[in-house]
Amino acid sequence: MISEPFALGNSQMHRCDPRIRLVSATAYAFGVALFHEFPALAAALALSMVLLSFARLPLREVLKRLAVVNGLVVLLWLVIPFTFPGEALFHIGPLLASRPGIALAAQITLKSNAILIAFIALVATMPLATLGYALNQLRVPDKIVHLLLMTYRYVFVLEQEYQRLMRAVKIRGFQPATNLHTYRTYAYVVGMLFVRAAERAERVQQAMLCRGFKRKFYCLQEFKAGRGGLIFSLLMSAALLGLVVIELR
């Protein structure tokens, strides 16, 4: 089952207005992505950790998510230092590792971790439905928001259908191997999933028409920023400004 392990909680972060968290996370991500200086990037990583500590999330789960991204980062470390031109720092056999190459790989590592941790702390701590409505209130176009919400709603139904298909395949003794039969079976499963998704979409649309759907959705959720939200946005702005100062110094 696809789950949202961080969405439920009662920390200060969870209680903060989702709109403020969303805007903060976006501004922060843009800022950090543009930084080049190591002091600023290190400070950003530290700030992300502070944000994470406010969200009080299970550390194991957070590390699992970070591991996914850092797998990709390891791949970059294997390539960038040896392909980026510049002053050589050391060599392994005929391969030369350049100083700017290593610096670049280090920057990417710091940036991606800082941004990811901040997003886990700020955005993953709200249920996806709430994220949708927060985006809606921030004037993100209706169509995008509804694509997001409908995808979220039906991804679970499709997952169930996928599980059902896989069960049907397994109880008839299917064992995946490296052969044409396996590829064909998977292709059938995926194809069938598309067919079922399309049919489901049609029935959902019919159900919506029956309830007088006029291509407009209505959001019932209302958000209140409150004093906590105000304090949080001030602190975030100050921190971001501080990071910019360190970067430009």
Binding site: P127, L128, A129, G132, L149, M150, Y152, R153, Y154, V157, R200, R203, V204, Q206, A207, M208, C210, R211, G212, F213, K214, K216, Y218, L220
Partner: peptide, 28 residues
């Protein structure tokens, strides 16, 4: 006329129950 679909998953598409039930009246 109200139609109750065979598969409830076709009928319920909003994230929360309240929103789904209020969807019809809002459309009206």
């Amino acid at each position: 006329i109200g139609l109750l679909f065979q598969d409830a998953d076709d009928q319920l598409f909003s994230p929360t129950v309240l929103e789904d039930v209020a969807f019809g009246p809002l459309n009206l």
